[in-house]
């Protein structure tokens, strides 16, 4: 538990001092979502219908942007080896990294999303559904993304490969996240979708750090 807090603190310090990765991810998120109305037209009837899905798709891509660096910089300068040798278990390291990734990326996406919802003319209930679904869904993106980041450590063309590995695994989150917003726009209850997202989060919390640790072990040895 202390190890986890130390790792999260270290990552946050590094992010605040040097990194612009997180800011870039949010700028990309807003910019990409703003592009869509130019492409599909600005019909105020249509935008709320497609808005939830678009915001979620762009959120997946934005969360993926900063994933590649999750372990790569530590791998390059050797601190990953030191962390591996430290008494903190690898699973804790993986959980801490994912938590820090969520705190630096997921939360910013969560704050930016309601603004985008206004641009897409989403009704008030749908904005609530968007916030709730992203609160439950974005940590899953960080946790599952950690597996991909660990697997592609040291690979040629790691970034493209990471997208190929991780995007198929993000599809369930996308389906239920966008489904909750669609339900809210259409006036249906959104409880079931949020519960499934919560289930994904619990499963990812239990299993993803373990898989990430297995992948890290292959990368270090």
């Amino acid at each position: 538990m202390i190890g986890l807090a130390l790792i999260v603190r270290r990552e946050l310090k590094l992010a605040f001092r040097g990194g612009t990765d997180a800011v870039i991810a949010v700028v990309f998120f807003v910019l990409a979502a703003v592009l869509f109305p130019f492409g599909v037209g600005t019909d105020p009837q249509m935008l709320p219908r497609i808005g939830g899905g678009i915001i979620w798709v762009v959120a997946l891509l934005a969360a993926m942007l900063s994933l590649e660096r999750m372990f790569a910089s530590d791998h390059e300068d050797g601190s990953l080896d030191l962390l591996y040798l430290s008494p903190v278990p690898l699973g804790t390291l993986a959980l801490g990294k994912a938590l820090a990734h969520w705190l630096t990326t997921g939360i910013l996406l969560l704050i930016a999303a309601p603004v985008l919802a206004l641009l897409y003319n989403l009704p008030g209930t749908a904005i609530g559904a968007l916030a709730a679904s992203m609160l439950l869904g974005t940590p899953v993106l960080s946790l599952v993304g950690g597996i991909g980041a660990a697997l592609t450590l040291g690979a040629r063309r790691g970034g493209v490969l990471l997208a190929l590995l991780i995007l198929p695994l993000y599809i369930p989150v996308l389906i239920f996240g966008a489904g909750a917003i669609d339900g809210a726009v259409a006036g249906r209850p959104i409880g079931p979708q949020l519960m499934v997202l919560g289930g994904f989060l619990l499963a990812a919390l239990a299993l993803a750090p373990w898989a990430t640790a297995a992948a890290l072990r292959q990368a270090i040895e």
Binding site: L151, T152, L161, L165, L169
Partner: peptide
């Protein structure tokens, strides 16, 4: 993804092990 990951590393052993973890996740 499995095929791409297998061939993504200079060390074939590393590619095979990474692909194995991916296969179990998938």
């Amino acid at each position: 993804g499995h095929i791409a990951l297998t061939h993504a590393f200079d060390n074939p052993q590393r590619g095979a092990r990474a692909a194995a973890v991916l296969a179990l996740v998938g």
